[in-house]
Amino acid sequence: MADADEPAEIDVYTDRAHLLAVLVALFGGALSFTDPLTPGWPVLYVECPTGQLSWHIHPDDVWLFNNVPVVDDYPWDQHTTRVKCKRIRSLVQQLPKLTYAKPEYGNP
């Protein structure tokens, strides 16, 4: 049975938003309505050790970020998607492993 707070259908935006909720919980961040091309879609900014990361959040998924402050005119550092992906790859290399696969599935 679905949780009352969750949407009935899970699409790619909602799937991604769940992962982003973990990322912002780890590093902090803010929501801001800074993109004039997508009114109603907040931008999630996450400030991590490798630099700023950002994503547009579907309005139906904003409930996942109730604990994230909404900030007017949050400053975007002008990163591109390519730069964001490079920062994420670098972050993955820096983070310690918090858990491992079960032994029967092998261990990296």
Rank of each mutant, 00 (worst) to 15 (best):
L95E: 09
C48Q: 15
L26Y: 03
L98D: 00
K102H: 15
P42M: 09
P96N: 03
F27W: 10
L23Q: 06
D15Q: 12
D5E: 15
E9W: 14
L20E: 04
G29C: 08
D73V: 04
A25K: 10
Y13M: 08
D35N: 15
Q94F: 01
D73G: 11
G51M: 10
S54Y: 02
D15L: 13
W63V: 13
D5M: 12
Q78P: 00
C48L: 09
Y100E: 15
W76F: 06
D72M: 12
Y100T: 15
P75G: 05
V83L: 00
D35G: 02
P42H: 08
P42D: 08
G40V: 12
D73N: 15
D73T: 10
H18T: 05
D15Y: 13
V12L: 14
V70H: 09
V12A: 14
D3M: 05
P7I: 12
P42L: 06
D61E: 10
E104F: 05
D3E: 07
D3P: 03
D11I: 07
V70A: 11
G106F: 02
P49W: 03
K84G: 14
L44A: 11
A2P: 12
T81N: 11
D35A: 15
T34W: 02
Y100H: 12
D77M: 01
E9R: 13
K102D: 09
K84D: 02
L20H: 00
T80P: 01
T99V: 08
D73L: 08
T34R: 12
Q94Y: 04
L23M: 12
D61R: 04
R82L: 07
P42E: 12
